[in-house]
Amino acid sequence: MEKHIPGLCEMEDIELLDLAIDHKDQKAWTELIKRYYTKVSATVYRIFGYDSEAEDIVQEVFMELAKCAGNFRRDSQFSTFLYRVSVNTAFRYIKRKTSKDIVCDSVELLVDSLALEKNGDCILEAGERAAMVNSVLKTLSPDKRMAIVLFEVENLTLKEISDLLKAPLQTVWSRIYNARKEMYDKIFGNMKKQR
């Protein structure tokens, strides 16, 4: 009987990684990137928001993966490992880039939009809503922003967030709590003032 020879696209992630590292097979590496590019992009966009910078983070994730692929201990799924790399890279990027001088002009814009939508005068497009949410999220400190995004958007548990961000459970919870409070105050506090 003829032996079935698996193609790259039929292989498991770990097999591709082994090929790329041990046998220096670039096609296997490309296949791996191809397989996960969409997922990594989705993760980064969810964490960072759809932005021109997000594209750079996605690329940075794969560079980071190349650097630390040798450290992958095989005690978890490759996808889990890559997810951690994605989150950590995005977090580092946010920490590096977030400046305290972010002006809240965008928040005022958001308040106007929300007021319009609530009054039924205008229904916001999905893109506009996303931009709006990003604007407020970007005004949060990196720690709070990561915590609330991982909790609300990525649907991770407190324990998972605590492991990822290497922060105690209680700290993670208070970051989420304060982030929600801050966002609420920023959006609706301003709205009240305007009235």
Binding site: W29, S41, F62, A66, R129, V133, V153
Partner: peptide, 29 residues
């Protein structure tokens, strides 16, 4: 709004993937 408005479907660009693979593969080795 926070939960639902950050899910964006994105389709990979082959050119970018190949270029990314070239650059990261060098780092890998």
């Amino acid at each position: 709004a926070v939960t639902t408005n950050r899910h964006i479907s994105h389709f990979p660009d082959q050119k970018k993937i190949e270029a990314l693979s070239d650059a990261s593969f060098k780092i890998l080795h």
